[in-house]
Amino acid sequence: MAPENPDPLVRLEGVRFAYGENEILKGVDLTVRRGQVIAIMGGSGCGKTTLLRLIGGQIMVDAGRVELAGRNLAEISRAELYDMRRRMGMLFQFGALFTDMSVFDNVAFPLREHTDLSPELVRDLVLMKLNAVGLRGAERLMPAELSGGMARRVALARAVALDPMLIMYDEPFAGLDPISLGVIGQLIRRLNDALGATSIMVTHDVHESLEIVDYIYFVSEGRIVAQGTPDQIRESQDPFVHQFVCAEADGPVPFHYPAGSLDEHFFGKELRT
């Protein structure tokens, strides 16, 4: 695809990561250009969320490098990392709203923590952000009173409160009804373009993502196995992509978790004696 802006905001090179013995990522290369919305897709437990946590600096790579706006995350101090995070927004899987604060206070939280704006200005900004996600009328509600889709939208308003340069979404579509799902999808695209931000989305919802993203990476077993624009993906003959897009049960992604042979597992005792 032809990038509008060739300067990459995020670049991963040969990234390896393991939780103890369990190797999650086995050499991932990935580039996100400014202004793009990209999706990282793959089955559950393939290391997608780990990729997001690496980009956010929550965990550090074992090998390779993660570059954010030209800075290697492994080489910067905690203070610098926190500076970077002020320009990042992250939407967690279930929103992660602060349950002891109202919707208004949740969205105001990053503004109050990081700026010295007057209460009136904070109020105006919060209402603007809430308006953008269509929940201006819900400012007084507590998170417990919101539906899943509404909570996700409030969390989105909170994530963009400081007008970030990079927005990350961890499974933004998980557990939503089709209408909320469409709303969130459109919001992701609209907010990205309106803020001039860059978005990375981790998801396994193919059809919704194909509608809104610029570029897609497929991850399987710790590696990038396919990539391309939505059009390329739709027409791809790659067996993995085909299995994913058409939601087939078996294929390159096996149905079975790796196990010994059936005989040995079921009749192990008899066979050994």
């Binding site: 002020r86 992250m90 939280f109």
Partner: peptide, 25 residues
């Protein structure tokens, strides 16, 4: 219970990602 639930619902992580130190806050 409060801190544990904030951890379980990723509120602490969210705070950390917003560049707010959960230990201080």
């Amino acid at each position: 219970a409060e801190i544990g639930l904030m951890k379980a619902t990723e509120q602490l992580k969210a705070m950390d990602m917003m560049a707010v130190n959960p230990i201080a806050r």
